[in-house]
Design a protein around this nucleic acid. Structure first.
Lengths: 138, 138
DNA sequence: CCCCTGACTTGGATGACGTCCAATGCCTGC
DNA sequence: GCAGGCATTGGACGTCATCCAAGTCAGGGG
């Protein structure tokens, strides 16, 4: 993750304790925290950090392309630090668990011109829904 | 749409003026209204209808499988009366316009077992993003 | 045809999530 | 170090949605 911090500094990001903590919280695979969860974890490392700063920082990381914003349900947005390797998501309908997945096909190729209605297509998101092993067992 | 009303009555739905109006508003292709838009249109036909009733009725139509809930952005949920023919969505990143599309591939077949993490997959949603002809021109 | 009952409707309170703002704090280049 | 400007703060505000208790109404039984 420190490479992320280096990269950001290189882009002229002013480094502060708050931003460092937020970046640290967003580390790892299959991490998909809500803003509130990020804030809760950040507080445990830096008690005086405010919600507004977490929202600001997350928004900046998204604009910089370092973090992806994911809406798997109609609840709070989630933040996915795995922004550099394209992937899609698999969501448990019961507990909300999320895994990153890499399907083999190319959905963009599957949309014929006749179904594009003159749009200039720029991207596609795929969300698989199902029930995770834990919830199936229960 | 009256066939929808017939079907619902057949399932023991108590028919009321409010429900009829909501069902009428949700008619047509490429219709993806928010709850508030549904309410606004319903009010013009039945001035005293309340927001709560619109939310209740939309929720029931969704449980009955007659309407699909769609979250194309992180704003308000949208309601899609085209629930019987499977399809995906194409969204304009600028104006938010939504079209129903029918890609040729089968995304479910594109997810190998090794990428299923033990989940029991039940469905998949695909959202194409781009810019519509109107916004491209502007 | 009317009445009764349980389902439906209402609107206002409540809650989750996110944004905005003016005042203050504190990086960083000089 | 100092200054200037970007970053942080927290509390108000906004949007979308849900909840609730009280009143209303659809439609089957008599």
């Amino acid at each position: 993750m420190s490479d992320l911090l280096e990269r950001l500094r290189g882009r002229g990001w002013r480094m502060t304790a708050q931003r460092r903590v937020v970046a640290e919280v967003l580390d790892g695979d299959h991490v998909h925290l809500t803003a509130d969860e990020v804030h809760a974890r950040a507080v445990s490392k830096l008690p005086e950090i405010s919600r507004a700063t977490v929202y600001n920082t997350l928004g900046e990381l998204v604009s910089l392309g370092e973090v992806r914003e994911v809406s798997t349900d109609q609840r709070a947005k989630r933040y996915d630090p795995n922004a550099h390797r394209p992937h899609h998501h698999l969501v448990c309908a019961q507990c909300g668990a999320i895994r990153d997945v890499h399907p083999s096909g190319n959905p963009l190729a599957d949309l014929p011109d006749s179904e594009r209605f003159g749009f200039t297509i720029s991207g596609v998101e795929v969300t698989y829904r199902g029930v995770c092993p834990n919830c199936t067992a229960a």
